[in-house]
Amino acid sequence: MTPDRSTPRRAAARRFSLPRDARWERLQRAVLAAGAAAVVAAVLRQAGFFAQASDLAMLLGPLGIALMAAALPVRARAPDVLRWDGAQWWWQQAGEPLAVTPDVFIDIERWMLLRLNPAVAADGATRRGRQPVRWVAASRGALGAQWTLLRLHLFLARG
């Protein structure tokens, strides 16, 4: 006799403490600094300031700035909390929790990039007004024993 599997599986309520991933923050900082430096270099070159500079020199400037930005220390912060209450996902930084719908944007087994969208109420309006989308990097090394549970909950728990 086969067991009845007609009822959908529901993930139990769980709380995940997500420490900030220093490598992810350094990568974001480096990309932002390189982009800003490239824009400034392009504008200055167009204005005639670097007319004699080679293309290689124009590339090395933003690259050097990106490396310097990535080398700066990452400030330690309190871990953020992602919580599943059995019906809804909640994201809490410093302050009031925000109802979210997490999407796994990138999953490479040891590292995930999550996009946390503001939850949409039954009437189609987002809760607490228009909140920005939040991006969160989670890694197996930072989460330790919670890693497998977080992955299971993200794929089984639909808010």
Score class of each variant (00 low, 15 high):
119 A>K: 06
94 A>T: 11
123 D>Y: 06
100 V>Q: 07
93 Q>D: 14
106 I>R: 08
89 W>Q: 09
92 Q>D: 02
94 A>N: 09
110 R>N: 14
112 M>P: 02
112 M>R: 10
89 W>C: 10
125 A>N: 10
111 W>M: 12
104 V>K: 01
118 P>F: 03
97 P>N: 10
98 L>C: 04
100 V>E: 05
110 R>M: 11
115 R>T: 05
123 D>L: 04
93 Q>F: 02
99 A>V: 06
105 F>L: 13
103 D>Q: 14
122 A>Q: 12
94 A>I: 00
105 F>T: 09
127 R>P: 00
102 P>E: 07
123 D>P: 04
127 R>L: 12
120 V>C: 09
116 L>P: 09
121 A>H: 08
107 D>Q: 01
90 W>H: 15
104 V>G: 04
95 G>W: 07
100 V>W: 05
87 A>K: 12
92 Q>G: 04
121 A>P: 00
87 A>Q: 15
111 W>T: 10
93 Q>W: 05
90 W>L: 14
111 W>Y: 11
115 R>Q: 13
106 I>Q: 09
105 F>P: 00
92 Q>W: 03
100 V>T: 09
88 Q>I: 05
99 A>D: 02
121 A>E: 13
99 A>C: 06
123 D>T: 02
121 A>Q: 13
87 A>E: 15
120 V>R: 15
115 R>C: 01
100 V>G: 05
122 A>N: 01
89 W>R: 10
106 I>H: 10
91 W>K: 09
96 E>H: 12
121 A>F: 00
116 L>I: 09
124 G>N: 07
104 V>D: 08
126 T>P: 10
97 P>D: 10
